[in-house]
Deep mutational scan, measured.
Amino acid sequence: SEIVVAMYDFQATEAHDLRLERGQEYIILEKNDLHWWRARDKYGSEGYIPSNYVTGKK
């Protein structure tokens, strides 16, 4: 599975969105859409994140 790191904070506005915290790692579950990826955080929460807010883990 692909691990990404959040470059920016993202506040979830929709129920299906996942909040991003800058510097935290997330697991990508689905990339069915170019701009919104389904991800899981370290607490096990899942939701959609803006793909341009994250970068591949170095």
Rank of each mutant, 00 (worst) to 15 (best):
P50D: 06
L20Y: 01
M7Y: 05
A39T: 01
N32W: 09
Q24L: 09
M7R: 09
Y8N: 07
E2N: 11
L20I: 05
S51L: 04
V4N: 02
I28T: 01
R40Y: 03
V54M: 03
T55M: 11
T13D: 09
V54E: 02
R22C: 12
F10L: 08
Y48N: 08
H35Y: 13
G44D: 04
M7E: 07
W36Y: 08
E21W: 07
V4M: 09
W37C: 05
A12D: 06
N32C: 15
S45G: 12
I28N: 00
A15F: 09
K57V: 14
L29I: 12
I3H: 07
R19W: 07
Q24C: 13
R19D: 14
W37G: 00
G44P: 01
T13K: 13
P50E: 03
E2H: 11
R40C: 06
Y43A: 09
N32Y: 11
Y26T: 01
V4I: 04
A15K: 13
D33V: 05
M7N: 06
I3K: 08
E25F: 11
D33G: 10
Q24D: 07
S1R: 14
N52R: 12
D9P: 05
N52A: 14
D17R: 15
H16S: 13
A12K: 09
Y43I: 05
Y43W: 11
D9L: 04
E21P: 00
Y8L: 10
K57G: 10
R38E: 03
K42Y: 06
N52M: 11
I49E: 00
D33A: 07
Q24I: 04
E30N: 10
A12F: 04
A12L: 05
K31S: 07
S1V: 15
G47L: 01
Q11A: 13
N52F: 10
K42R: 10
Y26R: 00
L20R: 00
Y48T: 07
I3F: 08
F10I: 05
V54A: 01
K57Q: 11
K58A: 13
G44C: 06
L18E: 01
I27C: 10
E14K: 14
L20N: 01
P50L: 05
E30M: 08
A15H: 11
S1Y: 15
T13F: 10
G56S: 14
R19A: 14
S45R: 15
F10G: 01
G23V: 02
I27G: 02
Y43C: 09
S51I: 05
E2P: 08
Y8T: 06
V5D: 00
L34S: 12
I27V: 12
A39L: 04
I3E: 04
L18H: 01
I49Q: 02
E30A: 09
V54K: 01
G44I: 04
K57P: 10
L34R: 11
S51M: 07
A15V: 12
I49S: 02
G47W: 03
G44K: 03
D41K: 01
E46P: 00
R38M: 12
K57M: 12
N52E: 12
S1M: 15
E25S: 10
E25D: 08
Y53Q: 06
W37H: 03
D17F: 15
E21G: 03
G56I: 14
A15G: 10
L20C: 02
I3T: 09
G44S: 04
W36V: 05
L29N: 01
A6Q: 01
T55L: 08
E14M: 12
A15P: 15
Q24F: 08
H16M: 10
Y26C: 03
W37A: 02
Y48G: 02
